[in-house]
């Protein structure tokens, strides 16, 4: 490896180490720091475990939530949980409606490094009739200026599933007169 080149601007260091493996950063006090390229990749054997049926459902066009099995509780989850957060009983799988309303939303112009190429993208929390908790999804086929809280939306499923939460997304749906958004 050649002798490392010197830099006084820290922001120029990364490109140099990516290219040549090392750089010498000199700060305002003249202190030199040797900086090296240090890559790190890992492939996990990730199990969805008790959440598996949710992701298998998405792959076959079914959106699943869960419902507390204790009759006196019966809490319905828009994002499934294996056990009830309220009473601790096991839950059972249920099928959720494919339509709901936007409870909140944002348009992300940046994101984690792996997602920068997808910007801008919309995130929405969806509320469903008769369901106690929400679901966070991507919202497509609309832009920042069109979206509002209470907007009716419906689900779309990825025809070539990747077994990820991105196998489902929502799009705007024409409003029905009777729909009333929830508070909170």
């Amino acid at each position: 490896m050649p002798a490392p080149r010197k830099f006084t601007k820290f922001r120029e260091v990364q490109a140099e180490i990516d290219k040549n493996g090392a750089a010498l950063f000199v700060d305002k006090e003249g202190v030199e720091s040797l900086i090296i390229h240090s890559p790190y990749t890992i492939h996990y054997i990730h199990s969805y475990a008790e959440d598996s049926a949710f992701f298998l459902g998405l792959a076959s066009g079914v959106l699943r939530g869960s419902k507390c099995s204790k009759a006196s509780c019966g809490f319905v989850y828009g994002t499934p949980r294996g056990h009830c957060m309220v009473c601790g009983s096991p839950t059972t799988w249920i099928e959720l409606p494919k339509e709901g309303r936007i409870h909140s939303w944002t348009t992300c112009h940046f994101g984690g490094e792996a997602f920068l190429k997808e910007t801008p993208y919309n995130l929405a929390m969806v509320e469903f009739d008769g369901v106690g908790s929400l679901l966070l999804v991507r919202l497509k086929e609309c832009t920042e200026s069109e979206i509002y809280i209470g907007m009716p939306v419906e689900a779309r499923f990825e025809p070539k599933p990747k077994y990820s939460i991105t196998d489902i997304w929502f799009v705007p749906k024409p409003a029905a007169a009777s729909e009333k958004p929830r508070r909170g």
């Binding site: 992701f55 909140s104 997602f115």
Partner: peptide
């Protein structure tokens, strides 16, 4: 499982 793969971005959550 449910949140990170949508954008990996905390600012998005606080915006919501």
């Amino acid at each position: 499982n449910f949140d990170f793969p949508l954008g990996g971005f905390y600012t998005g959550y606080y915006a919501l």
